[in-house]
């Protein structure tokens, strides 16, 4: 997993509520058996028309999109399907944090396993970010803090363990493997067997 401690970048803004993972990556792109080049499928049906031409006014088609590493999204971003292809495609596209007032459970969990930081902020901060696309903000994972160009800084909640893994750039499988003896003991000591 790619390490991230602190990053300053411009935001791109998608002000729609309840954006589901079928929009982030439509199911027809889930037929891959790898993760290679999956960013091409990101928001495929919103970024491109039926002929494959870029839809100019879609925020992720903006000329300066390569400079925008943070996606500010409407409330309840990432609802729906559990496909991890959603955070994979965002990350491959270049997004390093998703900022919203609410992020769906499974998407948030999948994001944390891939170094994509889910930043949940209060409504006022959210409204400001929605109204100011392109704002240069800092995500400070070490301090659990989002800093706005206005000088305002807000803390965001993030699971300690997931934060540790992203700060160190390590995946979570190792920790589970360290517990393999505990798992074995649990299996032998159960009062019933599945």
């Amino acid at each position: 997993m790619e390490q991230l401690t602190q990053l300053t970048s411009k935001t791109t803004v998608l002000p729609i509520d309840d954006v589901d993972t079928d929009q982030i990556i439509p199911a027809r792109f889930l037929t891959t058996t790898t993760r290679d080049g999956i960013g091409k499928a990101l928001f495929a049906d919103w970024r491109f028309d039926a002929q494959g031409n870029a839809i100019k006014d879609f925020p992720l088609n903006a000329p300066d999109i390569a400079d925008c590493k943070f996606l500010v999204a409407g409330r309840n971003f990432g609802c729906g399907s559990s496909r991890e292809h959603a955070p994979w495609s965002l990350f491959d596209f270049g997004i390093r944090a998703v900022i919203s007032s609410e992020i769906a459970d499974i998407f948030r969990n999948n994001s944390l396993k891939n170094g994509l930081v889910p930043v949940i902020v209060d409504n006022d901060t959210h409204q400001w970010l929605l109204a100011n696309p392109g704002a240069e903000v800092t995500v400070d994972l070490e301090a659990r803090e989002l800093r706005l160009p206005t000088g305002k800084a807000v803390t965001f909640p993030i699971d300690n363990f997931a934060r540790h893994c992203i700060l160190e750039g390590i995946d979570q499988t190792g920790y589970l493997m360290q517990n393999i003896d505990n798992i074995g003991r649990f299996e032998s000591n159960r009062s019933w067997q599945p």
Partner: peptide, 20 residues
Amino acid sequence: FGIGTTEVGHVLATQCLLQR
């Protein structure tokens, strides 16, 4: 409950997940 592919790997390898 539904899980992502990284967690599918966790269960395949350890029969466990990391959960809150």
